[in-house]
Design a protein around this nucleic acid. Sequence first.
RNA 1: CGGGGCGUGGCGCAGUCUGGUAGCGCACCACACUGGGGGUGUGGUGGUCGCUGGUUCAAAUCCAGCCGUCCCGACCA
Length: 432
Amino acid sequence: MLVLLSYFMKASHLILGTQRENPADAEIISHQFMIRAGLIRQVSSGIYNWLPLGKKVLQKVENIIRKGMNDAGAQEILMPMVQPASLWEESGRIDKYGQELLVFFDRHENKFCLGPTHEEIITDLCKNLITSYKQLPLNLYQIQTKFRDEIRPRFGVMRSREFIMKDAYSFDIDKEGMDKSYSIMKEAYIQIFDAIGLNYRIVKADSGAIGGSDSEEFHVLADAGEDLLAFSDKSDYAINAELLAEHKESKNPASLEGMPSPDGKGLLKLKRGIEVGHIFKLGSKYSEVLNLKIQGEDKDIYPEMGCYGIGASRIVAASIEQNYDDKGIIWPKSLAPFEVAIVEVNQKSKEEIKRKCSEIYQLLKDNKIDVLWDDRDKRPGVKFADMEVIGIPFTIIIGERTIETGEIELKERQDEKPKLVSHQDLVSIIKG
RNA sequence: CGGGGCGUGGCGCAGUCUGGUAGCGCACCACACUGGGGGUGUGGUGGUCGCUGGUUCAAAUCCAGCCGUCCCGACCA
């Protein structure tokens, strides 16, 4: 019996955690809907619990990233969240990161910090792991919780202190190799963000505190974005507006609108974006300062490194900022916590309704479709509203109206009314 | 760190000015009705009013200090 219950993904057994009212302290859309749809609950400023539905979405993001990285030849590892501060002293970044680095002491009075990023750890790891140039090129990545003690965390998981990030690090014998690793990662990122299915852009970026030369950012376009991006209306020139403003000296980014594009083609247009990915060429900065030296063909070399981040938890919020309506979240199919919901209407009056739900549920399961069966003893309006705020792409409605006809009512998230489809077509329509 | 809010059951709020038995809506539990867009009724559960100290016969309410949290700014991915 227990096996049977857990096998069925029924709403009556699932912690949905939906709320009818907006929490008072959530300002932006994604934060409001993430709480109302039962994805997250706040623990402390910039620190969140991920509830079952939120965790499911997050896992979908992670798996798309994982596949893209593996396909590109990167190897997954897991590094510790707790790092000895001595490594940060060695790299000289303990001061540069400053208060954003959360420092503490263990019982032996040794100084540690919570990892905001892992250049130090991975470089140190490779000192023992990589001994010959023949092992290069190499790309190692992890998907893990990061902690940055933000001055002002805000907007839910958009700018939180604790967040889930994929970070990858490449090692090459020379600059040409690094350039190649960088382009492979850029290509992998394009595949990953295409697979997620959000509207995004790649822009030139500032390499900031991470250091290094070339760097590009991947932005999900959304009005709530914290970054301003500048595009040429005639070419594919695109840059983080803040960086361009710096080059132009003391211009504020918003004033760039309508100015000539620096590549000489067309005029600049501005759009807001949420940074969800960032790729850097680091060079030998970290390998030198942390003394990662490996044997080359004829002499020792410091590997040329690159690092590549994707904000997994931020993507969840960014997706919502880009796709929502007054009823709630609208997920792309790639991220939806369930692909389809079955809403059981008027369930008490007829035994056939329950039987029909069970039959459809089984059909979908057999076709590997991720389905939620809303079997709760609630009024239809409540169920519809919940499925809509959660943002499930399809809803199948099973009730007295169609129980006799054999047809199935299928409603897409953004449609007002359901369509009647045949039993045979159901699976192919949902699979799209 | 500067400026501005807010802290009262899980959520949204009233009550604070003017001290006198902690309230409302939603959610939750039970029963009945209801049953295709957040339904109705009856009866319930649940709160040291952020914390500490002070004033007072009496403090959610007045005073002081502290803490938490949100927004704007500086900063940052």
